[in-house]
Amino acid sequence: MKNLTIPEEEYMLPGHTACLGCGATLAMRYTLKALGKNTIITIPACCWAVIPGVYPSRTLEVPLLYTAFEVTGAAVSGIRQALSAKGIEDVNVVGFAGDGGTADIGIQSLSGAVERGEDIFYIMYDNEAYMNTGIQRSSSTPKGAWTTTTQVGKVRDWKKEKKKNMVEIMAAHGIPYTATASIAFPEDFIKKLEKGKKIKGPKFYHVFSTCPTGWLVSPNKSVEVARLAVDSKVFPLYEVENGIYNITYMPKKEVSVKEYFSLQGRFRHLTEDEINEIQKEVDESWRILIEKEKWSKSLIKV
């Protein structure tokens, strides 16, 4: 008898070359558990371009097309349309890209694919910076963070700008389904993927994926940090289905931003006041999200 809360089947093999405690590998493991064998995946330049190992190594039990940094949206479109041209409609076509490859350099091709309504899954595993190149700031790096291109230094040049909200951008496209997810909540993530399997059209998942190396987090705290991000409302779990917001996990205990930051070296330089300011912004975003959920649900015609 097995005591499992997520599917047992594995489509990601061990022996890959990810860092200790890598959240991005968990994001992949859960994605494939949910989508299964009948899947084609494409990965641009990102950590996952090297995690499968050096040629001729492969670590996935599904075919993988490596591609250039900014083209994930176009690549999934090409695969999807080629399959359709061959009369194959039941294969899950998945783009699996980092935050830089999605929110920065890849946002154009992603926007195009979503606008065209391609029947694809797009997974943005968000480790909140360009980690494969060595922890450079992306538009998905949170406010307050140190990176190698937003260093603290003498004049405190840490990242001052807020994180780009990709789910909102996707929702603005009128996407049929978009959701946030976290490596600390695999059941929630897999449920959202299962839901996506029943929806024709583009599905976008913003998956919070701890990077112990880049966040200066002890590898054993990788999942714990991701859980604190959700519990502190820094990274709420919700979905937007045809414009209707639905918060999928209500934090059960009060966790402060300070508590979430305390496990991570990248926020170590922040003063009490600076953390308080970020706390206010997090509270306000959470309040707005709750209002959006109420308001959008009030629009549903009974």
Partner: peptide
């Protein structure tokens, strides 16, 4: 597609799909 860059990228992915 929304650009020539994506045009070629989509052709590459489609051609790779056979």
């Amino acid at each position: 597609v929304e650009s020539e860059h994506s045009a070629m990228a989509a052709c590459i992915a489609a051609e790779n799909t056979g």
